[in-house]
């Protein structure tokens, strides 16, 4: 009788341990998902800002059509990448958009009248803050992925991760494109 009781007690303890580990994994995965949705929100916020900025700038700079077209194209590409939801593709598309945005912001330097426009100043603060937010959201997401991936890999959570097919998440990297395509200057 006592033997059966001890056996049952051990079984219960094991079950509790098992559920605790499972819940921990699910919790970590949810943090990763939430952090990803933060990146998503900020990327979309940037998509909304770009047309406004382009419209405001167009009135002042008639001869920079090519720059605007490039930014608009990059924006469309990044939007479709987000629709697919693949972390690596979004990273690549975001990098393209970063590069063309940076180029556009450089050309703004040549138009002092534009830079004095109140509406433009507000938009630019919004845009640069949104860029910061994307960077910080990436940082928070990668921190979360790191903790989750460690849990998936390490004992004892790895046993449960294997049983319920928890998969490691991808890190989100935005490579700096400007450095690769430095503008060529001829004297």
């Amino acid at each position: 009788m006592t033997f059966v009781l001890i056996f049952l007690a051990v079984l219960v303890v094991c079950a509790i341990f098992f559920f605790a580990l499972y819940n921990k994994l699910v919790g970590l995965r949810n943090i990763v998902k939430n952090s990803w949705s933060q990146i998503d929100v900020q990327l979309k916020r940037r998509f909304d800002l770009i047309p406004n900025l382009v419209e405001t700038a167009k009135g002042y700079m008639k001869h920079e059509n090519e720059t605007f077209v490039k930014v608009t194209e990059a924006r469309a590409a990044a939007m479709s990448a987000i629709g697919k939801g693949n972390v690596k593709e979004v990273g690549a598309a975001a990098a393209d958009l970063d590069a063309s945005l940076a180029k556009m912001l450089m050309t703004f330097e040549n138009y002092p009248e534009l830079k004095a426009n109140q509406n433009f100043i507000a938009l630019q603060e919004e845009l640069s803050s949104t860029e910061n937010k994307i960077a910080f959201a990436r940082q928070a997401y990668n921190d979360a992925v790191m903790v989750f991936n460690n849990a998936v890999e390490m004992f004892p959570t790895n046993i449960i991760a294997g049983m319920f097919s928890f998969k490691q998440s991808d890190f989100f990297e935005i490579e700096k494109k400007e450095e690769k395509e430095a503008p060529k200057v001829n004297f």
Binding site: N34, E126, S129
Partner: peptide, 16 residues
């Protein structure tokens, strides 16, 4: 004050 608000939001995102 948009800038201050933005800065706080940035840090809120970074800290999760």
């Amino acid at each position: 004050s948009p800038q201050l608000y933005n800065i706080v939001e940035e840090m809120k995102i970074a800290s999760g």
